[in-house]
Amino acid sequence: MNIGIIVFPGSNCDRDVRWATEGCLGLPTSFLWHETTEIDCYDAIVIPGGFSYGDYLRCGAIARFAPVLNSLISFVNKGGKVLGICNGFQILTELGLLQGALTRNKNLHFICEKVNLSIESTKSSWMKNYKKNDSILLPIAHGEGRYQCSPDVLKKLQDDDSIAIRYADNPNGSIHDIAGITNKEGNVLGMMPHPERACDDALGGIDGKSILSTLLS
């Protein structure tokens, strides 16, 4: 069992994720350069935070054409688990594996703080250690985290029980306080908060451990 972390030019949370999955949780983890196409030997893939390709044009717009992401689509279609964190969430929406888009924070600030979140759906295995409405504390660090989608897509997310995580006190203007969503099947999770930055008491919290531990279970 093995986790792969995709590394783009401009990724900057790749080593944090590995520190959390391998160092804190003891899960075997490797880095995957964005030009590779061989990802079937992994059991779960993480797209980490950062500024892939400088976030030129739009966040995730150029990353979505990376060779590794062609392979990711078939990986997902075969049921593989994919977690996109922050810039990874933005890339998954650009790629169309998750619906909607992430736009500029309502107050224009780059927000770097800990936020209270509530678990909205436990349909996917990502949230198997939680009950609905459980409260967790995770850091966010983003300038473009305002989740947007059409009313039709919002209804579909609600009907499919795909809204995974909500902000308790909406920091960025996301519609319906959305902080993280899954695809319909539940094997892809995108979230703006950073679970990898909350896996050791020395960093002020360990609420990120539970979600990351489900990568290989």
Binding site: T103, R104, N105, K106, N107, L108, R146, Q148, G173
Partner: peptide, 13 residues
């Protein structure tokens, strides 16, 4: 350009 239904905080600033 942003769709009319999408808030443009940079434009408002």
């Amino acid at each position: 350009h942003l769709r009319p239904s999408v808030l443009d905080p940079a434009g408002e600033a």
